[in-house]
Design a protein around this nucleic acid. Structure first.
Lengths: 323, 323
DNA sequence: TTGAAAGCGTTACCAG
DNA sequence: CTGGTAACGCTTTCAA
């Protein structure tokens, strides 16, 4: 009944070198006194915390819950706990969460913060610690999970063109993010593929938030020849645009077709329901978690980023142009 | 430069008994070698993990992100980290998260799981550990944060009556939850206050999910004299009802007024936008977190539950009955 | 004002 | 097969 023996029993030592009777006696005692090992002591000894940190810029953004759900599922399956950090896109908070890694609170980090400084990524790389980027490409690592934003956006724009649209506008994401840039590129490629001239005044830089969609509509609708379709950088932006249209009396989709990106849960619920590019959020969370686990367990990884497939979900916000 | 001295400096020992020069020397060294204390060792020594666990049944449910946001805000402010657990309403998972407390991974638990077994609450009480219930009353503790479901529901029903409705139906929550029961009581009280007879066939037991709203509509619309208004137990249920109405060709609000509960983010975005009872989700998360911190820090608590105010948000899903 | 030493609760190694 | 013991990295008490 020495502590070391108890430890052996409780950890199901691979080389089952414990006599059955002793084992049973210990198990009984454990049961009887409701003994649960102290995780900090165990962690200290083993140098493992069995926790991973997941950083998101804003949990309330409908993009993230699904992602978190997927990650949690994979991690809890693997015996890891999830420490959730909301960074509010604040560099300071982000730093404080990176400290978690240095202080051994977590064994790895999952960053779903598109706005986070390159600095953070570089520090993580320098430290040589396990981390994975979600929905964000970065040249400093191959551990990220994304969709092909460029191709998906291009496909969506081509769909609009197929409907007969020629005057297609774009509210972009922030152009200092890979995601924002890639989607802008896809938009341009889409136009190009149909020999449609790129017009500067049809592109409004946004920030993935609702307000920027509204702002874009206000701007675009003052143009002498406003667009007949809008490719938004994401659903939130598309939603903001939709609301602005309602406010300004612009009929959607008759006067303006709108496409979003991500297919967050509300897309099917607004009126008109939103045509959008579906991003497999749950899968993205799971794939990221798996990659991180591979890193953690020292398993060989493909050494290449994971690129998930998207799908254009056609709903009611897109129709052929009126004229 | 003994570890103990370093510890003193780093912990800003209240009785600042460290010579300035030594302090500076240590600070410099810490800076230079990027030293970060090991949290598990510290935790083991101090018997504190500075972490709290937050259990939710389903992060993807729009009710929770705001709640989590509020909690995270308060906790991180107080130097606590948030461990997030998704229980999937699975008793087994719930148990496993309770173990976190026994193994000293977390210092306290915040339970936002309406479906969780009483058993869990009782065990927690028995263990005498700090925990708080969110959006759920329980006789075994005074540490919970709720809204007055009964009164709020009653108010919403009275609003419908004020519009002229007499045939008012209710899709309830699960009747084995306090929340579900209280709202049903509120519904009955509302009818009573206007001398409207309670009709069994107007009440459909649901489970707070979309499908139960749809089921209710299907059932109610077969009645010889269908209701002119529906008080749903929550927004998700109301949404399910709304969709079923669309499917069955029931015009909302003309033929059927609908009221939800919670005011989750999508309420203003559906068509027609949903009249609902606003629950201050962010505040609920923050209040729960604060109460848990009080418990943790051994501060005196009021010893009474916290009841937050609701507000009826009138939108476009409610109008006077057609006839 | 600082150093030395004990101990937090485990696990892992070495004896027996 | 099992018991003793050291060590994980820190904080805290006691002594100097």
């Amino acid at each position: 009944m020495d502590p070391s023996t108890v430890s052996r029993v409780l950890n199901g030592d691979a080389t089952l070198v414990v006599k059955d009777e002793t084992r049973q006696r210990i198990l009984d005692a454990v049961e009887q006194m409701q003994y649960v090992p102290n995780a900090m002591a165990r962690g200290l000894r083993r140098q493992r915390s069995q926790m991973i940190g997941l950083l998101v810029p804003d949990i309330a953004n409908p993009f993230f819950p699904q992602l978190i759900l997927g990650a949690e599922r994979v991690f809890s399956e693997a015996g890891f706990r999830l420490l959730l950090g909301n960074t509010d896109e604040d560099a300071e908070k982000e730093r404080s969460y990176v400290e978690l890694l240095r202080s051994n609170v977590v064994e790895g980090l999952m960053l779903a913060t598109a706005f986070s400084q390159d600095e953070t990524v570089e520090e993580l790389s320098r430290l040589g610690v396990p981390f994975v980027l979600v929905n964000r490409a970065h040249s400093g690592t191959s551990n990220y999970v994304i969709v092909n934003d460029r191709v998906a956006t291009r496909g969506a724009v081509e769909y609009l063109i197929g409907l007969g649209h020629r005057r297609i506008a774009h509210v972009s994401g922030p152009l200092y993010t890979e995601t924002g840039l890639s989607r802008l590129r896809g938009y341009r490629e889409g136009l190009l593929s149909a020999q449609i001239e790129y017009r500067d005044e049809y592109v409004v830089e946004g920030d993935f938030k609702e307000a920027s969609g509204a702002r874009a509509i206000e701007r675009l609708w003052q143009l002498p020849d406003p667009p007949t379709a809008l490719m938004a950088a994401n659903d939130l932006t598309a939603l903001g645009a939709l609301e602005a249209c309602r406010r300004l009396g612009v009929r959607v989709p008759e006067q303006l077709s709108i496409i979003g990106f991500n297919d967050v849960p509300f897309c099917g619920m607004v009126t008109p329901s939103l045509t959008t590019v579906r991003v497999p959020l749950l899968e993205m969370g799971m794939a990221s978690a798996r990659r991180l686990l591979d890193l953690l367990e020292g398993r060989a990884t493909p050494g290449t980023p994971i690129v998930l497939d998207t799908e254009l979900v056609v709903r009611n916000s897109t129709v052929p142009p009126e004229r």
